[in-house]
Write a protein that binds this DNA or RNA. Structure first.
Length: 445
RNA sequence: GGCCCUAUCGUCUAACGGUUAGGACAUCGCCUUUUCAAGGCGGUAAUCAGAGUUCGAUUCUCUGUAGGGUCACCA
């Protein structure tokens, strides 16, 4: 007998901007489906007209687009009322559910709702990560499954849809374990097979409480896009929150994650969302990007006022690639770094305090002598060969003959950047080019 | 509070009865081509507690403790 085709789903409700915590469940379902050549379904759970908004649906669709998590089918529960109605009627006929007269306790309540006739039994089910679980459903009472025949509620629509869509595996957070028994009761009532459950760890904030939309720690997913995080970085980080492949490799591409993913290695204890580790994951992936791609991101984040500077050029930025990349963990920091003025020296001759040109105890004469030596050495280098390697080679020759390399290196660096802290003089020289470099050195004399 | 789940460095985790308890992030120190960054090397740091079972428990059992989840005419 051939294996049943794996079908997983992710079912967000469009009641707010989809926040990062939710990405993990989506990812696990996606990974599992892809790994088993199955199907991954995205289902919009918008049965609550009061809270559901189309803009939020668009929002999570954009998140999926950005992350590159492709889904094979898309459903909207608000368009499926006829299907739910059919099941509701059938269950009504079978007397498994009933219309119940209600006492109105709160505003907005209805005098009639549809309740599930609870068989009051012990429901036992197996969970791929938690093991065997057992619940007494008596305490649930005859829970409400629909407001009326046209307005089914969450537990009912989930079960009907999972059945109709032939969902084989339900991978979700442990906050859903207590929902599972009542969903199983409904499954049994409509004659649906039981899917395989895998309840992963809950994602926690720094206070060890479940991550909520209000946590400043996590933000709507697209903010990460706007801040220049990479899908690869975010996905890699999320995958490792509550799951790991074993072994010591940590940087995985999406393809590698698909390959490595397994339910057995999902974690039981809650996992704290650690933004610092996200930064690290993102940086690792950012380093892996091809140069062209890195530049594309960088150009996106360079502030407009920098781009309109007279001496701004794409070539300069291309030359700056290395120093730009090594100082960031996500591309949004490019913007910040330019805004602090850190790179102003690239575009114009810096103003600086002349006394800072002197290295420790050296005199003005020594400084001038060293700079003069530097200028003549640099003039030997052809403009087309003016690379950091060549500059370094020629400067180090002189620097090594001095009592301290700093005697030369410091004034050179400082005259080029005018800053206490900056990249090394060789790379700056390369970025500036031969003419500008020599001109700044002459100015320092 | 009822029901349920969980428990290894600060954090994410490895170990599926026998390891000097491993890795990564963070942190600290050192090195390098002055500074910054990056990089390299190294250090600090954990089995919640108490009983069992066993020749031997991080690992199995029980109890305690501590965390967490969930208890809607939301999803």
């Amino acid at each position: 007998m051939s294996e049943q085709k794996v079908i997983t789903r992710f079912a967000p409700s469009p009641t707010g901007k989809f926040h990062v915590g939710g990405i993990r469940s989506a990812l696990y379902n996606y990974l599992y489906a892809r790994k088993h050549n199955g199907k991954f379904i995205l289902r919009c759970e918008d049965t609550d007209p009061a809270r559901s908004k189309k803009e939020y649906e668009d929002y999570f669709i954009n998140v999926f687009k950005w992350l590159g998590l492709e889904y094979d089918e898309f459903f909207r529960q608000s368009e499926r009322t006829e299907i739910y109605k059919k099941y509701l009627h059938k269950l009504l006929e079978e007397d498994k559910i009933y219309i119940s007269k209600e006492e109105i306790k709160e505003e907005g309540q209805r005098s009639e709702v549809i309740r599930f006739r609870n068989p009051n039994k012990i429901v036992t089910f197996h969970d791929e990560v938690l093991g065997d679980l057992s619940f007494n459903t008596t305490e649930l009472g005859d829970f409400i499954i629909a407001r009326d025949i046209e307005s089914p509620l969450y537990h009912f629509t989930v079960v009907v849809d999972d059945f109709e869509m032939n969902i084989t595996h339900i991978i979700r957070g442990q906050e859903h374990v207590s929902n599972t028994p009542r969903q199983i009761l409904i499954q049994e009532a409509i004659g649906a097979p039981r899917p395989i459950y895998a309840h992963g760890s809950v994602i926690l904030n720094e206070e060890r409480a479940k991550l909520s939309k209000r946590d400043p720690l996590v933000r709507p997913s697209l903010e990460y896009k706007d801040e220049g995080y990479l899908p690869e970085g975010l996905l890699n980080f999320m995958a490792f929150l509550g799951w790991n492949p074993g072994g010591e490799k940590e940087i995985y591409t999406l393809k590698e994650l698909i390959n490595a993913f397994s339910l057995e290695r999902m974690q039981k204890p809650g996992a704290i969302f650690n933004p610092e580790k996200l930064e690290w994951f993102n940086k690792e992936h950012l380093k892996l990007l091809p140069k062209e791609k890195q530049l594309e991101y960088i150009f996106e984040f360079i502030p407009e006022n920098i781009k309109s500077l007279p001496n701004y050029s794409k070539e300069k930025i291309e030359n700056m690639l290395n120093i730009l990349i090594e100082r960031i963990t996500h591309f949004g920091q490019i913007k910040e770094n330019f805004e602090t003025g850190e790179y102003n020296f690239v575009f114009s001759q810096p103003e600086y305090d002349k006394t800072k040109l002197l290295y420790k105890t050296s005199t003005v004469e020594q400084k001038n002598e060293n700079i003069n030596k530097t200028i003549s050495a640099l003039q030997e280098i052809l403009e087309s060969n003016f690379t950091k390697e060549n500059v370094k080679e020629s400067l180090m020759k002189i620097a090594d003959s001095l009592p301290s390399r700093g005697e030369l290196l410091h004034p050179v660096r400082f005259s080029l950047s005018g800053m206490d802290k900056s990249p090394d003089p060789f790379i700056i020289a390369e970025i500036l080019g031969k003419n500008e470099t020599i001109s700044r050195l002459q100015k320092a004399l």
